[in-house]
Amino acid sequence: MTVFDVYLQQVINGLNLGAMYALLALGFTLVYGILELINFSHFNVFMVGSFVALYTLEAFGLSGQTVILAGLPLVGVLLVTFAVTMTVTGTIGVGIERFLLRRLRAVKGPAAMITTIGVSYILFNIVLLTVGADTHNFANPLPTVTWAIGGASLRLRDVLIWIVSAVLMIALTYFVQYTKIGKAMRATAQDPEAARMMGVEVDRVIMTAFFLGSALAGAGGLIFGLYYNFTSFLIGFTAGLRAFTAAVLGGIGNVPGAMLGGLLIGLVETIGSQIIGASWADVIIFAILVLVLVFRPAGLLGRIAPNKS
């Protein structure tokens, strides 16, 4: 491998992680855009998602690296696994909003945010106490198809992660831009009271934001498993914090910003680790965050003065 190949490989890896961070960052941004709430429970909804995916794959008889699928069965299993995982995490997100956060919506101050931290730890401990502290091997049913690009290798897994992430992000963009409830989401983010007086049922809009964000976190959890081939009750905090950073970097509340921020953080992580060393990943990521925020406090695509009343 030449130096160039090494970096090319890190770009490929970085785009995988970046896609995962982007999916997670969208959940932070959708909820923040409407409620101005940082939803820390998102960290561990993502972690739960990776376990839901793990057990769904096991239900198909897939565990570890033992069974390799191809063609239609592979596509079918993956589609069902994504669908189940996203539905379950989406429902968890809606439950958190409906039964806990909604009651706190009228309360000023940090109560709602603290509640999300509490929920995050509850999810964390439930998983710890039920599935245990061990690292779980994640099923990898993908055939080991690899293409050589120079000295770097592009795997089927990489392509799959990119396609799935791209489809989800395009679908979300379409949803927010063109559907009726998507437009209501944007209107509510810009002026909740005015949106309400247009006849928007704001509760439904908020529920939709939680469902979509949490469903994307579930997809991110499955991608985590496919990428690293393991999962554990611990994965929520590191990935969640990096994804939150991505959302802030892109401009929190801004959908394209979350996608851009996610990809950048993924690339910074892999390329920065290559240059300075993997243990420095967080130092590099957060140094870049601090630098960007000092010079562009609203993030890369954010607006300096949010137009709110």
Partner: peptide, 30 residues
């Protein structure tokens, strides 16, 4: 709103980052 009451709000309160057409669509939300 569904029963036929619509507001023109103080200081207009359009959705600033939506197009004029989208604002009209929001008016027709119900």
């Amino acid at each position: 709103v569904r029963r036929g009451i619509a507001p023109v709000l103080e200081a207009r309160r359009l959705f600033p980052r939506m197009t004029v057409y989208e604002n009209l669509e929001m008016g027709a939300y119900t």
